[in-house]
Protein backbone atom coordinates (compact mmCIF):
# COMPACT_ATOMS: atom_id res chain seq x y z
CA UNK A 1 0.00 0.00 0.00
CA UNK A 2 1.35 3.43 -0.90
CA UNK A 3 1.42 6.21 1.63
CA UNK A 4 1.73 9.95 1.09
CA UNK A 5 3.21 12.03 3.90
CA UNK A 6 4.08 15.16 1.94
CA UNK A 7 2.04 17.33 4.29
CA UNK A 8 4.25 16.37 7.23
CA UNK A 9 7.47 17.11 5.40
CA UNK A 10 7.30 20.86 5.95
CA UNK A 11 7.23 20.27 9.68
CA UNK A 12 10.34 18.13 9.50
CA UNK A 13 12.10 20.76 7.40
CA UNK A 14 11.31 23.55 9.87
CA UNK A 15 11.84 21.70 13.11
CA UNK A 16 14.67 19.32 12.27
CA UNK A 17 16.39 19.51 8.91
CA UNK A 18 16.85 23.24 8.46
CA UNK A 19 18.28 24.17 11.91
CA UNK A 20 20.92 21.45 11.67
CA UNK A 21 21.62 22.21 8.01
CA UNK A 22 22.34 25.84 8.99
CA UNK A 23 24.66 24.58 11.72
CA UNK A 24 26.40 22.28 9.22
CA UNK A 25 26.74 25.10 6.68
CA UNK A 26 28.36 27.35 9.27
CA UNK A 27 30.70 24.57 10.31
CA UNK A 28 31.64 23.39 6.82
CA UNK A 29 32.01 26.79 5.16
CA UNK A 30 32.59 29.45 7.85
CA UNK A 31 34.06 31.92 5.35
CA UNK A 32 31.24 31.80 2.80
CA UNK A 33 28.82 34.43 4.06
CA UNK A 34 26.60 35.25 1.05
CA UNK A 35 25.73 31.68 0.16
CA UNK A 36 27.16 28.42 1.40
CA UNK A 37 26.61 26.83 -2.06
CA UNK A 38 26.31 23.43 -0.43
CA UNK A 39 26.01 20.54 -2.86
CA UNK A 40 22.67 19.02 -2.02
CA UNK A 41 21.49 15.56 -3.03
CA UNK A 42 17.86 14.91 -2.20
CA UNK A 43 15.35 12.13 -2.65
CA UNK A 44 12.27 14.18 -3.45
CA UNK A 45 9.17 14.40 -5.60
CA UNK A 46 7.29 16.86 -7.77
CA UNK A 47 4.52 17.46 -5.22
CA UNK A 48 6.73 18.79 -2.47
CA UNK A 49 10.34 19.77 -2.98
CA UNK A 50 10.25 22.43 -0.28
CA UNK A 51 13.53 21.29 1.22
CA UNK A 52 15.26 22.75 -1.84
CA UNK A 53 13.26 25.97 -1.60
CA UNK A 54 13.91 26.37 2.14
CA UNK A 55 17.63 25.57 1.88
CA UNK A 56 17.85 28.12 -0.94
CA UNK A 57 15.99 30.77 1.06
CA UNK A 58 18.43 30.24 3.90
CA UNK A 59 21.40 30.70 1.59
CA UNK A 60 22.62 27.16 2.05
CA UNK A 61 22.43 26.14 -1.59
CA UNK A 62 21.47 27.22 -5.10
CA UNK A 63 19.63 25.32 -7.84
CA UNK A 64 22.86 24.75 -9.76
CA UNK A 65 24.25 22.90 -6.74
CA UNK A 66 21.29 20.56 -6.42
CA UNK A 67 20.87 16.98 -7.61
CA UNK A 68 17.64 15.12 -6.98
CA UNK A 69 16.35 11.58 -7.38
CA UNK A 70 12.72 10.72 -7.92
CA UNK A 71 11.34 7.23 -8.50
CA UNK A 72 8.86 8.00 -11.22
CA UNK A 73 9.79 9.11 -14.75
CA UNK A 74 6.77 11.40 -15.03
CA UNK A 75 7.77 13.15 -11.79
CA UNK A 76 11.30 13.40 -13.11
CA UNK A 77 10.03 15.17 -16.23
CA UNK A 78 8.12 17.61 -14.01
CA UNK A 79 11.12 18.29 -11.75
CA UNK A 80 13.29 19.01 -14.78
CA UNK A 81 11.18 22.13 -15.34
CA UNK A 82 12.25 23.55 -11.95
CA UNK A 83 15.76 24.58 -13.05
CA UNK A 84 17.31 21.92 -10.85
CA UNK A 85 20.77 21.11 -12.14
CA UNK A 86 20.61 17.34 -12.07
CA UNK A 87 17.40 15.30 -12.03
CA UNK A 88 17.88 11.56 -11.84
CA UNK A 89 15.62 8.59 -11.27
CA UNK A 90 12.83 6.74 -13.00
CA UNK A 91 13.53 3.76 -10.75
CA UNK A 92 13.62 3.10 -7.00
CA UNK A 93 16.73 4.64 -5.41
CA UNK A 94 17.28 1.61 -3.18
CA UNK A 95 17.55 -0.57 -6.25
CA UNK A 96 19.59 1.73 -8.47
CA UNK A 97 22.28 2.64 -5.94
CA UNK A 98 22.93 -1.06 -5.48
CA UNK A 99 23.42 -1.64 -9.21
CA UNK A 100 26.69 -1.30 -11.10
CA UNK A 101 25.63 1.50 -13.42
CA UNK A 102 24.15 3.96 -10.94
CA UNK A 103 24.19 7.42 -12.58
CA UNK A 104 24.87 8.97 -9.19
CA UNK A 105 28.56 8.05 -9.34
CA UNK A 106 29.57 11.19 -11.21
CA UNK A 107 27.60 13.56 -8.97
CA UNK A 108 29.24 12.78 -5.63
CA UNK A 109 30.55 13.85 -3.13
CA UNK A 110 27.80 16.02 -1.60
CA UNK A 111 27.57 18.36 1.39
CA UNK A 112 23.98 17.45 2.19
CA UNK A 113 22.61 13.97 1.53
CA UNK A 114 18.87 13.86 2.08
CA UNK A 115 17.63 10.26 1.95
CA UNK A 116 13.95 10.96 2.46
CA UNK A 117 12.47 7.63 1.41
CA UNK A 118 8.98 8.81 2.30
CA UNK A 119 9.10 11.10 -0.74
CA UNK A 120 9.39 8.08 -3.05
CA UNK A 121 5.83 6.78 -2.57
CA UNK A 122 7.08 3.73 -0.67
CA UNK A 123 5.17 0.48 -0.72
CA UNK A 124 4.83 -0.60 2.89
CA UNK A 125 5.91 -4.18 3.25
CA UNK A 126 8.45 -6.51 4.80
CA UNK A 127 12.08 -5.68 4.17
CA UNK A 128 11.50 -2.03 3.18
CA UNK A 129 13.59 -0.37 5.90
CA UNK A 130 16.26 -3.05 5.55
CA UNK A 131 16.66 -2.15 1.85
CA UNK A 132 16.72 1.57 2.68
CA UNK A 133 19.53 1.04 5.18
CA UNK A 134 21.45 -1.06 2.68
CA UNK A 135 21.19 1.74 0.14
CA UNK A 136 22.16 4.29 2.80
CA UNK A 137 25.39 2.40 3.39
CA UNK A 138 26.04 2.32 -0.36
CA UNK A 139 25.53 6.08 -0.45
CA UNK A 140 27.98 6.69 2.41
CA UNK A 141 30.41 4.34 0.69
CA UNK A 142 30.09 6.38 -2.51
CA UNK A 143 30.70 9.57 -0.52
CA UNK A 144 33.86 7.94 0.85
CA UNK A 145 35.00 6.67 -2.57
CA UNK A 146 34.63 10.16 -3.98
CA UNK A 147 36.69 11.56 -1.11
CA UNK A 148 33.84 13.43 0.50
CA UNK A 149 34.88 14.96 3.80
CA UNK A 150 32.12 16.54 5.88
CA UNK A 151 28.46 16.03 5.15
CA UNK A 152 25.01 16.35 6.60
CA UNK A 153 23.03 13.14 6.39
CA UNK A 154 19.25 13.10 6.62
CA UNK A 155 17.38 9.79 6.72
CA UNK A 156 13.59 9.69 6.81
CA UNK A 157 11.33 6.66 6.76
CA UNK A 158 7.94 5.34 7.79
CA UNK A 159 7.87 3.10 10.83
CA UNK A 160 5.08 0.57 10.34
CA UNK A 161 3.99 -2.63 12.07
CA UNK A 162 6.33 -4.93 10.12
CA UNK A 163 9.16 -6.44 12.12
CA UNK A 164 12.65 -5.17 11.43
CA UNK A 165 15.12 -7.88 10.52
CA UNK A 166 18.14 -6.86 12.58
CA UNK A 167 20.13 -9.93 11.57
CA UNK A 168 19.56 -9.25 7.88
CA UNK A 169 20.71 -5.63 8.16
CA UNK A 170 23.89 -6.62 9.99
CA UNK A 171 24.63 -9.52 7.64
CA UNK A 172 24.19 -7.37 4.53
CA UNK A 173 26.36 -4.60 5.92
CA UNK A 174 29.08 -6.98 7.10
CA UNK A 175 29.20 -8.60 3.67
CA UNK A 176 30.65 -5.29 2.41
CA UNK A 177 34.24 -5.57 3.62
CA UNK A 178 36.29 -2.59 4.73
CA UNK A 179 39.88 -2.94 5.95
CA UNK A 180 40.14 -2.78 9.72
CA UNK A 181 36.38 -2.89 10.26
CA UNK A 182 35.19 -5.69 12.52
CA UNK A 183 31.49 -5.42 11.70
CA UNK A 184 28.45 -3.46 12.82
CA UNK A 185 28.47 -5.26 16.19
CA UNK A 186 25.06 -4.08 17.32
CA UNK A 187 24.07 -6.58 19.96
CA UNK A 188 21.63 -4.94 22.34
CA UNK A 189 18.51 -5.64 20.25
CA UNK A 190 16.28 -8.69 19.99
CA UNK A 191 15.81 -10.39 16.63
CA UNK A 192 13.46 -9.46 14.97
CA UNK A 193 12.66 -6.00 16.30
CA UNK A 194 8.94 -5.40 16.69
CA UNK A 195 8.73 -2.53 19.16
CA UNK A 196 8.50 0.91 17.50
CA UNK A 197 10.90 2.76 19.76
CA UNK A 198 13.42 -0.07 19.51
CA UNK A 199 13.21 0.11 15.73
CA UNK A 200 14.01 3.82 15.90
CA UNK A 201 16.93 3.19 18.26
CA UNK A 202 18.25 0.40 16.02
CA UNK A 203 18.04 2.60 12.92
CA UNK A 204 19.87 5.45 14.66
CA UNK A 205 22.62 3.16 15.91
CA UNK A 206 22.96 1.39 12.56
CA UNK A 207 23.39 4.67 10.68
CA UNK A 208 25.93 5.84 13.21
CA UNK A 209 27.94 2.63 12.85
CA UNK A 210 27.67 2.61 9.05
CA UNK A 211 29.16 6.10 8.91
CA UNK A 212 31.92 5.09 11.34
CA UNK A 213 32.71 2.15 9.06
CA UNK A 214 33.79 4.60 6.35
CA UNK A 215 35.70 6.88 8.74
CA UNK A 216 33.02 9.48 9.47
CA UNK A 217 32.31 10.51 13.04
CA UNK A 218 29.25 12.45 14.04
CA UNK A 219 29.57 15.85 15.64
CA UNK A 220 25.82 16.21 16.13
CA UNK A 221 22.73 14.07 15.61
CA UNK A 222 19.07 14.59 16.29
CA UNK A 223 15.81 12.93 15.33
CA UNK A 224 12.08 13.46 15.27
CA UNK A 225 9.10 11.12 15.31
CA UNK A 226 5.79 12.38 13.94
CA UNK A 227 2.44 10.56 14.08
CA UNK A 228 0.81 10.10 10.69
CA UNK A 229 -2.82 11.23 11.07
CA UNK A 230 -5.53 8.53 10.92
CA UNK A 231 -2.93 5.79 10.59
CA UNK A 232 -0.89 3.59 12.87
CA UNK A 233 2.40 4.40 11.18
CA UNK A 234 4.91 7.01 12.27
CA UNK A 235 7.29 9.21 10.37
CA UNK A 236 10.85 8.94 11.66
CA UNK A 237 13.57 11.32 10.64
CA UNK A 238 17.18 11.38 11.72
CA UNK A 239 19.79 14.03 10.96
CA UNK A 240 23.51 13.90 11.59
CA UNK A 241 26.55 16.03 10.85
CA UNK A 242 29.40 13.71 9.90
CA UNK A 243 33.01 14.73 9.66
CA UNK A 244 36.46 13.30 9.16
Amino acid sequence: MMINVDALKDRLITELWLPIAIEAGTGFYPKLRKNKKMRLFSLTNDRNFNEIVRFEENKLTQRENVAVWTKDTLKRIRLETESIDIVLGGSPYEQSILGNNCPLQEHFPRDIINLDFTSQDPDLGNGRIEKELESLEKTVKLQDQKQGKNFLLIYTTIIDSNNLNKGGVIQTSDSIRVNGWSGLNINNFLQPISDESRKEAFIAETIQRMCQKYGYRSSRTDNKVVDIPIRNEKLYSMVGIYMR
Binding site: T73, Q95, G99
Partner: peptide, 13 residues
Protein backbone atom coordinates in the same frame (compact mmCIF):
# COMPACT_ATOMS: atom_id res chain seq x y z
CA UNK B 1 -0.83 3.85 -18.14
CA UNK B 2 2.50 5.48 -19.00
CA UNK B 3 3.73 4.94 -15.43
CA UNK B 4 3.76 1.19 -16.03
CA UNK B 5 6.89 1.56 -18.18
CA UNK B 6 8.89 2.40 -15.05
CA UNK B 7 7.99 -1.07 -13.86
CA UNK B 8 9.00 -2.58 -17.19
CA UNK B 9 12.32 -0.73 -16.93
CA UNK B 10 12.84 -2.30 -13.52
CA UNK B 11 11.85 -5.76 -14.80
CA UNK B 12 14.24 -5.63 -17.74
CA UNK B 13 17.13 -3.85 -16.01
Amino acid sequence: KIKIFDLWKEILE
